[in-house]
Amino acid sequence: MNLCNHKTFETVYKKYSNGLYNYLYYTFGNQTDAEDVTQNVFLKLWERCKTVSLENIKSYLYTLGRNECLNIKKHEKVKIVFQKQHTSDVNIESPEFNLEKKEFEQKLEQAISNLKEGERQVFLMSRIDKKKYMEIAEELNLSVKTIEKRMHNALVYLRTNIKEFNR
């Protein structure tokens, strides 16, 4: 298995590029930046294909991603937006309910955007990407303890902030 092999590289790209893209989206809250950095990271990886071992390729990708972020202009206020998949049973609810739900979603998105960067990354990697704490810890070179702490604090923050909006 040689990373400089085109086929191997394509496999690596297909396996990890979405995860990396999401992580970068959670960081910037900006699709264009996330897309550019993802591409730059993989070009850099290709450039260094002879020196990188396949074993720790995952955490290497995220490290490259973090380094690339530093090169990108200090991003404006993070504004994360999600694609919402409304289940069919929601549609039969009353319009009032739907309006209330929409309002709640907006508040939640706002609160997520206001989270500390580190907490936001970890929280969304877990809740949106459905990654295990262990997996996130490996990718970001952090301890599982740190991941758990960030998860806890993120959820506390989100609840208190949405509550404040309610008032």
């Binding site: 979405n18 893209y21 999401n22 989206y25 699709q31 897309e35 937006v81 999600f82 694609q83 919402k84 998949q85 409304h86 289940t87 709640f104 979603e105 939640l108 809740r127 949106i128 959820l155 989100l158 609840r159 949405i162």
Partner: peptide
């Protein structure tokens, strides 16, 4: 409610 809402969310698709 927060967790349940998030379960139906996903990242905007890559271009």
């Amino acid at each position: 409610q927060i967790i349940k809402t998030l379960d139906n969310w996903s990242v905007p698709e890559r271009k």
